[in-house]
Design a protein around this nucleic acid. Sequence first.
DNA 1: GAAGATGTAAACCCTATAGTGTAGTTTTTG
DNA 2: CAAAAACTACACTATAGGGTTTACATCTTC
Lengths: 206, 206
Amino acid sequence: MNIAQCKLTLSQRKRLDILAAARAECLDAGFRDTSMDRIAESAQVSKRTVYNHFPSKEALFMAIAAQFMEELRQAINVAYSSDRSLDDQLTEIANREISQVTQPDYIAMFRVFIAELGTFRDAFDDLLKDWNGSVDPLECWVEAASNDGRLTVKNSALAAAQFYSLLKGSLFWPVLAGYRSSPPEHERDAVISEAVTMFLARYESS
Amino acid sequence: MNIAQCKLTLSQRKRLDILAAARAECLDAGFRDTSMDRIAESAQVSKRTVYNHFPSKEALFMAIAAQFMEELRQAINVAYSSDRSLDDQLTEIANREISQVTQPDYIAMFRVFIAELGTFRDAFDDLLKDWNGSVDPLECWVEAASNDGRLTVKNSALAAAQFYSLLKGSLFWPVLAGYRSSPPEHERDAVISEAVTMFLARYESS
DNA sequence: GAAGATGTAAACCCTATAGTGTAGTTTTTG
DNA sequence: CAAAAACTACACTATAGGGTTTACATCTTC
């Protein structure tokens, strides 16, 4: 459970230990079903120390959420290339997206957040504000391909959303919602390939 | 909060009152954050009566889940028509699906279930068993249109899933996950129209 | 090496809530 | 109407868990 020691002060190390432990416990049992006592024990830290770093359970949870979103911000940066086929590039984008989105931890964390949406809506809204402000890399890609004359797209934001929808609608959301299990590799590939085909059938310049 | 009186015995009425109250409280605050006392009060029933009908909070919750799924089973039955344009028929299917799926109560209930997924996974799996066994009406529609020679589809299940994905990926899932608010009417229409266009661009027989 | 920040352990308070037991009242039913 | 079944009010148990306090130990930094 301990983080690599590095050159951090004891206090900083403990803080990271607490965050890591809290996160692990959340993924394992959900935020509601873990207690500050358990988190402290799992982090090998006294309960009081937890409260020294985080004034309340709520604050600890929001710190986890912020940390998680920070990780997601390492966004997929797919630059458009006029040399490679569109099919190739879209398949690569899709594979990266799906790799991220099918990680068990990602799904579990997402579920935990949805579960707490009712309680923490305001705090979440704050976190989402700048996230929603950022530009979607796929949208940029679509625009670039459009400017290059290889796609005919009017609304690139909508087109990008459509592509994501085709992927996640089969491979992510139903798993998150718990009405199907994680898709096997061959299905993953089939869905991606069909999404690319459909997208190009609609938007590729003739 | 009372159900229409009809010719039910007192006991039956109470049972329905309890279910309705529990459901309302769930939608309002989530299952975890409502108590049996509150449910009893809201149903205008003594707490003991609640426990006479449902042996535990868990049992009560699963009864709500079963009731909810039963309602959803009143599935959309869109018969394929060889007279009407495909565009028209798909738009109608989409509108019905989206109407259902954008109801605030539907979304809230879905969220509650996701929140409890960790705790009740086994019980949910039982509920899902026969739900997953049933045939998807859109899949039937696609097959009918295919047999009629107006669509060229190899995998109709996947094609149906793609169509749903295009709709829900913009209009439902992000709302459920809480990272966007309910879409305004004009966006709803635009997404539906673009989904239909994309679907036909891919599958309509030339 | 001393001051001040930080960590530790354990007891403690307070509140919420699932679930039960009981004694008495109302509704259903034969 | 009488018996059985269901409902009610209410007190009670048991437990969990967030958060605080205290007395003492350890680490960081000047």
